[in-house]
Amino acid sequence: MTAKPPRQIVTGRPRRREAGRAYPAIEDLYTANSYGQTLLRSLMRAQLGLSLSVLAPAAAVVALYPLLVVLVPSLAHATVGFLPVSLVVLGGGIYPPLVALAFWYVRRARRIEERFIELLLKEKEDGG
């Protein structure tokens, strides 16, 4: 890899929360401080753990229902009130948990990030 030219700022202060570019500022992140690796690992592990804790229950429910129907065949054509159980589950009951998981995930993922930012700010003050 050839050496990168030094980064120069020619247009004044970069805006906060700048969204206006096609690719992220990877160059800026090359300068991540030495504990960046560890921090990144812990952030990714926390986020991945959260993702799995959302997807695992969803996967369990959808994997177990067909299995249950194979094991208890009468469940296939049972009715609840006027509706077949299959319709109540696949056309209704399965969605509220999915939606709840989605909104719960958004809140938790944000909390992980906020904690991460706090941690980084503290380290920066300590170090600087």
Partner: peptide, 26 residues
């Protein structure tokens, strides 16, 4: 690929940190 860490940073670091890092380098 070269600099896997840089790429994962770009994927996972919240935007706020990015602006922090940027100010720091300046």
């Amino acid at each position: 690929p070269a600099d896997v860490t840089g790429k994962l940073l770009a994927l996972h670091i919240p935007e706020e940190i990015r602006s922090l890092e940027r100010r720091k380098t300046r």
